[in-house]
Design a protein around this nucleic acid. Sequence first.
DNA 1: AATCCTCAGCTTGTCTGACAACCCGAGGAG
DNA 2: CTCCTCGGGTTGTCAGACAAGCTGAGGATT
Lengths: 229, 229
Amino acid sequence: MIAPLRRNLLADQAADLLARRLEDGEWAVGTKLPGETTLAAELGVGRSTIREALRLLAGRGLLRARQGVGVHVERTTPAVTWESVLRGREIADVVEVRNAIEVEAARLAAGRVTRDDVADMRRALARRDEAFPVGDREFVEADIAVHRAVVAAAHNPVLSELFETFVPRLTDAMTDMVALLGIRDRDPEPDADDHRALVDAVAAGDADAAARISRAHLDAMLAAVRSPR
Amino acid sequence: MIAPLRRNLLADQAADLLARRLEDGEWAVGTKLPGETTLAAELGVGRSTIREALRLLAGRGLLRARQGVGVHVERTTPAVTWESVLRGREIADVVEVRNAIEVEAARLAAGRVTRDDVADMRRALARRDEAFPVGDREFVEADIAVHRAVVAAAHNPVLSELFETFVPRLTDAMTDMVALLGIRDRDPEPDADDHRALVDAVAAGDADAAARISRAHLDAMLAAVRSPR
DNA sequence: AATCCTCAGCTTGTCTGACAACCCGAGGAG
DNA sequence: CTCCTCGGGTTGTCAGACAAGCTGAGGATT
């Protein structure tokens, strides 16, 4: 058999087709789609198939069905998730954006840090020291926890959310890097002072110093990422 | 039958319930859900209803159904979209993050700017001057276009994507601000020099100056946002 | 005339039963 | 030992039926 007769799932095909027609502007936002029976007849499939296709698109936030009224267009462009954008991007690009976020976070944190924030940061710092001999994965996660505590001290939820978005992609890349460069074989680890100095600067409320230290630390990482040999 | 569902849309309720159970960790990523007939019996609904609930979740990327195999867990946490996070946040928080993005972008752009980038930036600058007398909305959009050109010159797709995400939320807030403060009534506009200086610094490859000018400009806006009276 | 009510007709929501398409592993054939 | 077949379990699709809900037209009421 050379030609596959019906390659895929009808409901998926129908959903794709409808999504394409939505993106092409066949139905504007707020307008009503043809009825399920009409669509089913148009595409030559059963009504349950059409319904599943519509549910697929509704789950993606494109459509909204209301009993007795009809199915209306909610959006015509697929929602962009942070994950989907980050996936497949060059790690260097991601790290550059992380720099932007963290340097600014350090600067803001210096002006807003509370007693509790300082305690959190120092706790994370201690955990990072403990994790150093344990393993690459553990060490990287403890390291990121320090940075997370600094970002949290900036008290900006959008910034924190953004930071968390980057964490998964960064954790993998950093673990590879730590393993590759054998960072944990060295003793004492070279970055320990960086982190302590950063936390001290934030705790002291020195915004310029906090930003400067953060930038220096992250630029060093960026350089390592760019030439991993 | 575990929980009798009867109120509104059964499929939606079933989807919510399954999503909650997923988030609670009842089924780990990669594991197989009970069969459709089993789930239907458990929730006391028909199989088609369960199927629509599963399609809803599949559309959100949580599940993945494969014929002959079963329905498996793809993710357990709902995908976070940029829109959903930005919506409802304090505008000051958003502007702070914009600062982080744009200052870093200006710094990077100074090191990577091409001849074409410079041409784009100057074109946007000229358009901004033209739009000044036209209207608030037009002026704000032309203003943002200048910033967009600077970000584009950084040649970092993640950064650009992030910038575009913030644009809708910023456009509204800035339009309000421009109208409220009557910025366009003044002549000549005070910010014109800021923008020109920023573009010049980027074109000249002066990273520190570009970052400094960008920061000064955006901090001024932040101050205006914080005290709009 | 203006307002309220009722109802027909359309829409989506749900259920049932049936069969097709498909995947996987067990167990036999070679 | 390898290959093949086949059975059981799973999702995919369909048709038909009825329930539930909304909308607007038009009659009934004030």
